[in-house]
Design a binder for these strands. Structure first.
Length: 740
DNA sequence: AGCACGCCGACT
DNA sequence: GTCGGCGTGCTC
């Protein structure tokens, strides 16, 4: 008997050992079915150990082997294994998350085009002995299969119904045999020249051409930051690069933040290349996903377009990875145990494959800009707007110095009037759903709060409910104050729902469209709103960040951010960066056509230095200044962080847990003479209480990523020695992107 | 993560 | 008297 070590889909840094007969064909990365407790589970082989720590009599035997060879390419397996170490996650969780759901459930990895039937020896015997006299059809089918076997023919037309074969299958006289498709080779189409839509191709300007040739000329791995302002033609650069790579018969992976919000780029690719393109969007069925996975792996797809998880697609011959909107937060997995960053993993994957990676953005993350400065990435700048768009004016409206009616300054109202009367559209951004973020008692100041989160409820007027935006709990609106019994309850603050009402009152002659999570919850509602905007039935558009992505509305000439103060003074050190990115994106919505546009920001703090730099000198100047600030503060990207997020029903146990962790790191550094590891906390999370659990954080920071990694790895090895309390759930977030 | 075992409240 | 709530502990 041979030992097999397997990983299971569990948040455990632990493997399990099983036995198998030595003759069985399987490899590291093969899926197997194992008995686990009293259940049957799918596991992935990670090792063939010489011996086991588990007593021999406790070892169970593997039930069956699903794959004779690994379901992962060597290159992908190496990436995932490295990633499990980097993010301190169990390998099982990582491997399973990187597989399509159907494969996690045990489906065949190869694409079976057809199932054919094959007669078994027992079947032949049964036939010879003349059984089945009472089942004519079954006998005929069996006879036919026997003849086919004799003639060495694999497949015979299935003339009989499935039920007939099923009956024979149940008697164990026949077996199902899968026929595997020979992959269609798209590369043959390259000779015919019509694979490329030449009419669609745009002429590149000098900068674009330079960018394309720089990438095409380079060899092996290189990470490029394509830093292009809105409208500078990043997409055309992508398409030219893809053409170059496809021409060589190699595949391309294009990652985008969210397909639903940016369907244009998919259309562009599909229009340009008459080659097999697979788009992995969120409403594919599991079977469709598996099919796409198989097609990419066998080399049948020329291009794969998808979101974060598409990074784990396998290829026959991958030649290029493009990751669009590289600054976008959605590339970081935030909710599962394996909190990976697709951008960072894409860098590793490109490196392992010796291919170029292009990161594109109009507002690159400070991390990527720092990598450019250090020479790790190479910079490609596109700062000419390819479209003849007019100049953009910006204004800061100081809320302190003027009359403000429910969040809207007189100046803003006047500006809106101006733009609307010229027949244009106006767009307002407010990052708060609902009618009002607070409902309070006018007599005593009591605030209606969610007991689960200790956060004020948001009042939704339309449904007349209170909703907690942290845990999604909903309750009825109270008639009375819970403390003094007064019925005089009032709202405070402003959400998009109220903004819509206020504007309807002030501008009764113009249609209003609101786009946020509430207004687009109904299926098709988003499309309907977008249609109203395009046909100009709606002239005033209100939305949260959702509205900022993708969509191009040529008649929008005024864009306003209704309140940016929250972002200027946030606990999160990345909030200014995010505000700047949102500002640029939002500004890109104004005046994209021939009309000149205007962007206004309402704030109580117009003097804020980063804000000033952003508005007067643009995003790159802002980024340089913000980077300097990060450097003096020792914050990322000038240090590496790891965040322990502890959750518990009581504050005490969470604090105790994190204190023990802090003590471990303290002790570990002292004993090993490691200097400069900063331990911040335990501190309460920004969202102290969520869904009835108290949340506390312990932040680790070190100027060297390698040192921090070393500390974390040692911690994982010795975690079990620490006797941590069981009342606390704690997850580790390496390179945290938010502190909620 | 699942799943079972186990110990306390509201029901035929 | 049971059904079922979720706390705790284990799975090679």
């Amino acid at each position: 008997m041979r030992l097999v070590r397997v990983a299971l889909a569990m948040p455990l840094m632990h493997y399990f050992d099983y036995l198998i007969e030595p003759s069985a064909a399987l490899d590291i990365g093969s899926r197997v079915v194992v008995p686990f407790g009293r259940q049957k589970r799918i596991a992935i082989v990670v090792e063939f150990p010489a011996q086991s720590d588990v007593a021999p009599q406790q070892l169970k035997r593997i039930i069956s082997v699903l794959d004779a060879t690994s379901v992962f390419s060597d290159e992908l397996y190496a990436l995932l294994k490295w990633s499990a170490g980097y993010y301190q996650t169990g390998l099982g969780e990582v491997l399973f998350q990187a597989l399509p759901v159907k494969l996690r459930q045990g489906e065949t990895a190869q694409s079976a085009v057809d199932a054919v039937w094959k007669i078994l020896p027992q079947g032949k015997i049964a036939l010879a002995q003349g059984e089945l006299t009472r089942a004519k059809k079954q006998q005929q089918a069996l006879q036919q299969l026997a003849e086919a076997a004799e003639n060495g023919v694999l497949q015979r037309e299935a003339e009989f119904s499935r039920a007939i074969y099923k009956a024979l299958l149940e008697k164990k006289w026949i077996a199902e045999q899968h026929l595997f498709a020979q992959p269609e080779v798209w590369q043959t189409a390259l000779q015919q020249h019509n694979w490329l839509n030449q009419q669609d191709k745009l002429r590149l300007n000098k900068q674009q051409a330079l960018a394309v040739s720089a990438v095409c000329v380079s060899h092996g791995f290189q990470c490029w930051l394509l830093d292009g302002v809105t409208g500078s033609g990043k997409t055309e650069v992508y398409l030219h690069l893809m053409e170059h790579v496809l021409q060589q018969g190699k595949q391309v992976l294009l990652l985008i933040p969210e397909i639903g919000l940016t369907p244009q780029i998919v259309r562009h690719v599909e229009n340009r290349f008459k080659l097999p393109i697979d788009v992995l969007h969120s409403n594919l069925t599991d079977s469709q996903r598996l099919l796409a996975w198989q097609r990419a792996k066998s080399g049948e797809s020329a291009v794969v377009i998808g979101t974060r998880s598409a990074l784990f697609t396998q290829f026959q011959d991958l030649g290029l990875i493009i990751l669009d909107e590289e600054h976008d937060l959605s590339y970081k997995q935030q909710d599962s145990g394996w909190r990976h960053h697709a951008r960072d993993l894409a860098v590793m994957r490109a490196k392992n494959n010796h291919i170029p990676l292009v990161l594109g953005s109009a507002t690159p993350s400070l991390e990527s800009l720092a990598n450019v400065a250090s020479g790790k990435y190479r910079h490609l700048v596109l700062n000419q707007r390819a479209m003849n768009s007019a100049v953009l004016n910006h204004k800061l409206l100081d809320l302190k110095k003027q009359r403000v009616d429910r969040g809207l300054s007189e100046q803003l109202i006047a500006l809106m009037q101006q733009h609307l009367s010229k027949g244009n559209q106006v767009m307002l951004f407010l990052n708060r759903r609902g009618f009002a973020p607070i409902l309070l008692c006018h007599e005593c100041g009591w605030i209606a709060q969610c007991e689960q989160c200790d956060r004020p409820f948001t009042y939704h007027k339309k449904n007349n409910i209170l909703s907690c935006h942290h845990c999604d709990r909903k309750t009825k609106v109270p008639r009375q104050c819970a403390v003094c019994g007064s019925t005089h309850l009032v709202t405070s603050g402003m959400g998009t729902e109220q903004l819509e009402a206020v504007l309807a009152e002030k501008f009764p002659d113009y249609g209003i469209a609101r786009i946020d999570r509430d207004s687009t919850a109904r299926k098709g509602a988003l499309e309907a709103s977008l249609a109203q905007i395009t046909t100009k039935q709606s002239r005033i558009l209100i939305g949260t960040q959702m509205l900022a992505k993708g969509h191009h509305f040529p008649d929008v000439t005024l864009v306003a951010m209704v309140n940016i103060d929250g972002a200027l003074f946030s606990q999160d050190f990345r909030s200014e960066e995010r505000l700047a990115q949102l500002y640029v994106q939002v500004a890109g919505r104004a005046g994209r056509g021939s009309k000149s546009g205007e962007v206004v920001l309402q704030t109580h703090f117009p003097q804020h230095p980063l804000l000033q730099t952003l508005l007067t000198q643009g995003y790159s100047a802002f980024a340089q200044q913000a980077l300097q600030l990060r450097q003096t503060m020792g914050l990322p990207p000038f240090s590496a962080q790891a965040l322990f997020r502890a959750k518990s029903k009581s504050n005490e146990s969470a604090v105790e847990y994190l204190t023990a962790l802090a003590a471990f790191f303290d002790d570990f550094c002292r004993k090993n003479a490691i200097q400069g590891l900063q331990l911040l906390g335990p501190i309460e999370a920004l969202q102290t209480k969520k869904a009835g659990q108290y949340q506390w954080h312990l932040l680790l920071q070190h100027s060297s990523r390698a040192v921090l990694q070393h500390c974390l790895a040692q911690f994982s090895l010795r975690r079990h020695e620490l006797n941590l309390n069981r009342y606390t759930r704690c997850i580790l977030d390496v390179d945290p992107q938010d502190f909620n």
